[in-house]
Write a protein that binds this DNA or RNA. Structure first.
Length: 369
DNA sequence: AAGACGGGGCC
DNA sequence: GGCCCAGTCTT
């Protein structure tokens, strides 16, 4: 049985389903800042921010982002430090760097107009199948599927689809379903309604089926198995990385900070000096001093232990011991620069983007001084 | 196909 | 403590 036959075996009244879903959305949709108009740039930014991130988290970031960068042009021209600061605390920081790369591409190749074809828009950095469909449908009214986690959950229940949604190829099954179901007169509301339903009614646990506008179309509800769907197999292991860190100041009250590499975890963000602990031969503060001396040529004075932080990422855990320290001798400026360290005052400190873990360390430090 | 890539809210 | 979130990129 191929996907299409699989789908038609579900016998659903498509016109009624569309009407029940969209009329519910028209009544109940939330008032969200990116729904003010259909400006493709605004829709695009919202979709990038919303990747793996809840609506309530995104709202304040989105509003500030639009104040800082009201147009694609202004965003394309912005300094990288500034766009990272706009994203500070949101996570998945490559999103905003890819977004700027893509915005510059739009300016160079498309005269500043976000393209409106699947082929062109999918080429943009950071725009995958979901985001392409979301922009095309919401900003341009094109009947393209926008399959995210919500849509897979909602449709797995309505159509009783039992494939593992953790598998990459499964998304295609749902895209085929959406292509059959989507309302060609209002693809924007259809796609948004599916996601809104997933967020407000058809939730991962305790779905509010009694309030559901498409309950009578839902095969999982009919069979009483809605809480067993979707099927998701994936297991993820996460490893723990022990780190030792110190917030180090000099006589001028400046802080020593380090810029992370341009690739990998927290790329291009700033942080306080820290080292991964790969030996238990030395106590942590002596280990820090040894690593610091090897890198920058001087030994910092370590004053006191500040805090121990467990910071959980999606794929690993940082276990960070943080000390307070100071430097009373000059560090070779060349060594600082080539290792991406620099001294900053408190004003500069606030203008640079730090991971939340390091914000927590600074907060604990300031509360103990 | 599987892993890297953040952070927070909810149960 | 685990799951999930308006996913994408790299390998």
């Amino acid at each position: 049985m191929n996907d299409l036959e699989f789908f038609y075996a579900k016998k659903i009244n498509i016109a009624e389903f569309q009407n029940d879903l969209i009329s519910w959305f028209e009544r109940e949709q939330r008032d969200l800042p990116w729904r003010k108009n259909k400006d493709p740039y605004r829709v695009w930014v919202s979709e990038i921010m919303l990747q793996q991130t809840r609506v309530d988290t995104v709202i304040p970031f989105y509003n500030r982002f639009m104040e800082w960068f009201p147009t694609l042009e202004e965003f394309a021209d912005a300094e990288e430090e500034r766009i990272l600061k706009a994203w500070e605390g949101l996570g998945y920081y490559s999103r905003v760097r890819n977004l700027q790369t893509a915005a510059r591409e739009v300016r160079a190749a498309y005269n500043g107009e976000v393209p409106d074809t699947p082929e062109e828009i999918a080429k943009l950095k950071g725009v995958g199948p979901y985001t392409a469909g979301a922009i095309l449908s919401i900003a341009y009214g094109k009947p393209e599927p926008a399959v995210d986690g919500n849509v897979m959950r909602v449709l797995s229940r309505i159509l009783l689809i039992k494939e593992d949604i953790a598998k990459p190829k499964t998304r295609k099954v749902f895209e085929a379903a959406v292509r059959e179901l989507i309302d060609h007169d209002n693809p924007s509301f259809f796609n948004q309604a599916l996601m809104e339903l997933g967020a407000l009614i058809c939730k991962p646990s305790n779905p509010a089926c009694l309030l559901c506008p498409v309950q009578q179309h839902c095969q999982a509800f009919e069979e009483g198995v809605q809480t067993e769907l979707p099927i998701k197999i994936k297991v993820k292991k996460s490893r723990t990385i022990p780190l030792v860190s110190a917030i180090i100041t000099n006589e001028k009250g400046e802080y020593l900070i380090h810029k992370r590499p341009s690739e990998g975890l927290l790329a291009n963000l700033w942080e306080f000096p820290n080292f991964e602990i790969h030996t238990s031969l030395l106590p942590k503060r002596e280990f820090f001093q040894a690593e610091f001396k090897a890198l920058l040529g001087v030994i910092p004075v370590i004053q006191q232990h500040i805090t121990k932080i467990d910071h959980v990422f999606s794929h690993l855990v940082w276990n960070v011991d943080t000390f307070a320290g100071m430097i009373d001798t000059e560090i070779d400026g060349r060594k600082l620069a080539e290792n991406h360290y620099k001294w900053v005052n408190t004003v500069e400190l606030e203008e640079l983007a730090f991971p939340v873990s390091h914000q927590k360390m600074l907060k604990a430090y300031l509360e103990q001084r």
